[in-house]
């Protein structure tokens, strides 16, 4: 299995360069990382260094931070041909819904951040548009006490929806530093505490790789591939 860490933030969003993140992730047993910065300069900072790191695939994606639904759709449409992986910065109920309704979006990151979570309507839309839901383990690692309890409740609701509608699930730590990274085994152990079975968690860690493969093919239109 090739495991990917799919929602990382490097300089200027995080505190590490892409190459440092890549080396740390390689040591932990990942075969690739996807860097999804909020405001990514073009070309991304440190992309040359990341290429030199070696032994691990470093993909520069993007995470859309939008104030309203229209902005999500327009940013996703304009980014689709520029990057291999598009995430949406979730947490707000309307943004979560908009991301799930947009087939250009690959992943909805941390929908539980504002304790909003995905609703039934958004879950149904995510199934139709094949938008993956990311289980962000960051709050599990960083929060303690009441905050974590409320976050766990929101996650529990969302995981029930994921199971009910058979949605794509991804697991990430949302790391902004190499000290936030966790190995695949640790991610599986953390996810199992939240009620994700081991096999499902392993699939979730491997899913970004297959999504990237799909995105890198040349599509003429929906379902029509250029060979």
């Amino acid at each position: 299995m090739t495991y990917f860490e799919c929602n990382l933030h490097t300089l200027p969003d995080g505190s590490d360069s892409p190459s440092r993140m890549a080396l740390a992730a390689r040591k932990l047993g990942y075969s690739g990382i996807i860097i999804t910065n909020h405001n990514a300069p073009v070309p991304p900072f440190g992309s040359d260094g990341a290429r030199l790191a070696g032994g691990i695939e470093v993909v520069f994606g993007a995470e859309i931070v939008a104030a309203d639904q229209r902005a999500v759709h327009s940013r996703a449409a304009s980014l689709r041909n520029k990057v291999d992986f598009i995430a949406v910065h979730g947490g707000d109920e309307k943004i979560n819904r908009a991301a799930c309704e947009d087939p250009n979006v690959d992943m909805l990151a941390h929908p539980q951040r504002g304790r909003a979570g995905i609703g039934v309507a958004a879950a149904r839309a995510a199934r139709d548009n094949q938008v993956a839901i990311c289980l962000d383990l960051g709050p599990m690692i960083h929060l303690r006490g009441g905050g974590r309890v409320r976050w766990m409740e929101a996650v529990k609701r969302d995981l029930d929806l994921v199971r009910k509608f058979d949605l794509h699930l991804m697991i990430s730590t949302g790391a902004a530093s190499h000290l936030d990274l966790r190995s695949p085994r640790e991610a599986v152990a953390l996810a199992s505490l939240l009620g994700v079975e081991r096999d499902r968690a392993l699939d979730a860690l491997a899913l970004p790789g297959s999504i990237l493969d799909l995105n890198r093919r040349m599509w003429a239109s929906v379902g029509v591939e250029v060979l």
Binding site: L179, A187, L193
Partner: peptide, 17 residues
């Protein structure tokens, strides 16, 4: 135990993993 060790993010005020 692996999971609980993974939730440690700082030790004595120093960022750690």
């Amino acid at each position: 135990c692996r999971a609980l060790l993974a939730t440690v993010h700082s030790v004595g005020g120093t960022r750690a993993a």
